[in-house]
Computed example of a mutant assay.
Amino acid sequence: MFQEMIVVEGKDDTTAVRRAIGADTIETGGSAIGENVLRRIELAQERRGVIILTDPDAPGERIRKIVAERVPGAKHAFLTKDEARGSRGLGVEHASDEAIRRAIDRVRGPEGGVGELQEIEWSDLLDAGLIVHASSARRRERMGELLGIGYANGKQFHKRCLMFRITREEFVAALEQLEREGL
């Protein structure tokens, strides 16, 4: 049995997650998360741990932010937009079993990666062309994929680097891969 409970948006996401990894889920019912749902997520975090897996879109990010603020220590799993794209839209329910398993394998938590932590500075994002650059949005999207922290605007990307304790080694390795890909 899978230890952590997976926080998802709806019943179709639950079906996809159960099919892929057999985990228990808590459904938020969309971005209007009720107090009762938040209390259940807090209890799940205390008892088993929680992984947030929401759609890679604005409502999914809003849900992720609400849950993360309420439940410190929750872990995060991210699907790329390509992994979550289906013929009827974008969402966890459209992801393949393999994509969901990969997202869970790349889970990030507040404890972060391996290695000595040297915080990523705002100037690192500027030097890497992740902000104030003609291709910064695309570069951040790919860096988010490589680091397993999802897509975000510049300010949120920096916050995620700090929140998920991305090490300088991880950042540099992802940046080198980005450069090899010609982005």
Rank of each mutant, 00 (worst) to 15 (best):
R70T: 14
R70W: 03
I63P: 01
A99N: 07
V50E: 12
G73D: 10
T80R: 03
A84L: 02
K75I: 13
A74Q: 09
I51T: 14
A84Y: 00
G113Q: 02
P59G: 06
A99Y: 08
R106P: 01
A74L: 12
L79W: 04
R70Y: 02
R101V: 14
E69Y: 04
I63N: 02
K81T: 14
H76N: 11
L53V: 06
P56K: 00
I66P: 00
G89R: 06
A68W: 08
A99T: 06
I104Q: 03
E83W: 00
I66W: 00
G60I: 04
T80N: 08
R85W: 08
E69Q: 03
G60K: 00
E69W: 02
I51P: 08
L90S: 05
R102H: 12
V71K: 02
D105Q: 12
I66S: 02
F78L: 08
L90E: 08
R101Q: 15
D57I: 04
G112H: 04
R102I: 05
E61A: 14
A103P: 08
R88N: 15
I66T: 14
H94K: 06
K81G: 11
G113E: 15
E83R: 00
E98I: 00
K81D: 13
E93N: 11
S87D: 13
S87E: 14
E61I: 00
A95G: 03
E111T: 12
I104S: 13
P59R: 06
H94R: 06
K65P: 10
P72I: 05
I66L: 07
K75D: 11
I100Q: 05
D105R: 10
I51W: 08
K65F: 12
R64K: 13
R85F: 07
A77G: 15
V92G: 07
P110V: 10
K75T: 10
K81V: 15
E111D: 15
I52H: 03
G73V: 06
G89S: 09
T54K: 02
P110R: 13
L90H: 09
L90C: 09
S96T: 15
R101L: 12
V71D: 01
P72R: 09
R108A: 09
A68P: 09
E83L: 03
A99W: 12
S87H: 13
I104C: 01
A68Q: 10
I52M: 01
I51M: 10
I100V: 07
P59Y: 06
R70M: 01
G89H: 04
A84N: 00
K75P: 07
R108Y: 03
A77H: 11
V50A: 13
H76W: 05
A74N: 07
R88W: 11
V71M: 06
R88C: 11
A95Y: 00
G113C: 10
V71F: 03
G86M: 04
V107S: 09
G86I: 01
V92I: 11
V71G: 06
P110Q: 11
A74M: 11
R85K: 15
A103K: 02
E93D: 14
T54V: 10
A84Q: 01
R70V: 02
I104R: 03
H94M: 11
D57L: 05
D55Q: 04
A68H: 08
R101F: 12
E69P: 02
H76M: 11
G60F: 04
I104W: 05
S96M: 05
R62I: 15
I51D: 12
A68C: 05
R85M: 09
I104G: 01
R106T: 08
A103E: 12
T80P: 06
